[in-house]
Amino acid sequence: MITTSDLRYSYSNATEFEFPDISLKLGEHLLILGPSGIGKTTLLHLLSGLLPTTHGSISIAGTELNGLGRKALDRFRGASMGLIFQRYHFITSLTVMENLKLRLGFTKKNIGSTRIQELANRLGLAEYLNKKVTQLSQGQQQRLSIALGLIHKPDVIFADEPTSNLDDENCDKVIQLLKDEADLSGSSLIIITHDHRVKSHFQNQLSL
């Protein structure tokens, strides 16, 4: 489902990051652990095609990322991947509901019309659907960020440091939520973090 081989990347000519090969089946979870500066975010951006693969190869759901043109890659990423960023990114001129609709709108997938309501109910966002995203609390923004990563039932969800700003209690909650929702969506889940509290939740781990 997700396989990489011989991945390397370097910004300018300084240090070159070398990444171990990954092989993950559909629906499996993977935790990638490593200290700051080891290239975790670089790996995630390579996997999601935000950075071009300059060395090695990545295949997701049978599609070679290298083989896709710019536009096709944009479309493939939009439909098959869900990204949950360390910092929350929303379209601030829109409401919570509109942000979720927007995320669904540009994928060609046929997702049931009740998906937004169901997901919002489970994530405790139902009563904030008509609010501007800027009016949400930190916790609500975090949950919206997760919702945006998996609303379209992607093949794979990438989460970048999803627990870095959270206390222990919320850390556990969010990880559990991510795992549950990934399972419900039938998606693979790849989390990269330096947060060792997350370790105990995953059997499948990779250290950089």
Partner: peptide, 15 residues
Amino acid sequence: RQELALLRTYGLSTF
């Protein structure tokens, strides 16, 4: 800029 980048991850092309 970030919202535009976000839209790219949602599948929108440069054009």
